[in-house]
């Protein structure tokens, strides 16, 4: 286990206890817990100045505001601050945030190593995340995994739209292929068209071509 000294920034006592138990179970020797971002930041700086920096930061994103005014109000801000001093610090975000955009931002701009989504399985996910980091791999809970998926658009392409239209008026794959060739639409090979139809069937949750067309019609697409 490569995590000897762990800093946890989390304002919910019970969560923290579970996390602490989990990282200790996985071999951490020293676990420092902080309920405030500013406090966590100071502890981080202190450890660095003492020449005994942390190996891992586990942080929530949102913290309840109370009477103490905080300079750093959120996990993102804490992470941004510590990243300035220690580029190679391992960071796991442990949060309920499910906006993909925000999660993506954490990975891309703040270079976090793992994102554990708070759920019934989050402890399992946490150990998986620690495992992944040990193996130098990123980790993300399956609920929000789309944040890191290739950002393909949900848009139905014009090609698919025309293809569906042609199928809906009863053209066979061969006839569609001929039509595409005639109008310089590519790909226009029969096998390419079949592949596209299969992909559309999955997108439209259809069992066959007829079902595909009926679904597309029901939705008012064609």
């Amino acid at each position: 286990m490569m995590f000897k000294k762990v800093l946890i920034a989390e304002d919910l006592g019970w969560n923290t206890r579970n996390i602490e138990e989990e990282v200790k179970r996985l071999g951490a020797q020293e676990v420092v817990i902080s309920e405030y971002c500013d406090d966590a930041y100071l502890k981080f700086l202190r450890a660095m100045n003492d020449g005994d920096p942390f190996d891992l930061l586990i942080s929530d994103l949102s913290f309840k505001e109370d009477h103490r005014t905080q300079k750093l109000k959120s996990g993102d801000e804490l992470i941004t601050a510590v990243r300035k001093y220690q580029k190679d610090l391992n960071i796991i975000v442990f949060s309920m945030e499910e906006r993909l955009q925000r999660i993506r931002f954490l990975f891309e701009d703040l270079n976090i190593n793992a994102y554990v989504f708070k759920s019934r399985q989050s402890l399992k996910h946490l150990s998986a995340a620690l495992d992944a980091i040990t193996n130098d791999k990123p980790y993300i809970s399956h609920q929000v995994a789309k944040a890191l998926e290739k950002r393909h658009s949900l848009d139905i392409e014009d090609y698919d739209f025309v293809l569906l239209k042609k199928l809906s008026i009863g053209l066979s794959n061969k006839e569609v292929s001929d039509y595409f060739k005639e109008h310089d639409i590519s790909p226009n090979g029969i096998s390419s068209i079949e592949k596209r139809i299969n992909r559309l069937r999955i997108q439209f949750k259809a069992n066959n071509a007829v079902h595909l067309i009926s679904n597309a019609k029901d939705l008012g697409l064609i």
Binding site: R99, Q101, R151, L154, D155, F161, F204, K205
Partner: peptide
């Protein structure tokens, strides 16, 4: 991107979300 992400977040194996001309 935000809107696409938001729409994407509702996608599951059971629910397919398609858009037309969003881009």
């Amino acid at each position: 991107d935000q809107l696409t992400s938001r729409l994407n977040s509702y996608k599951t194996d059971q629910l397919s979300i398609l858009t037309r001309n969003l881009d």
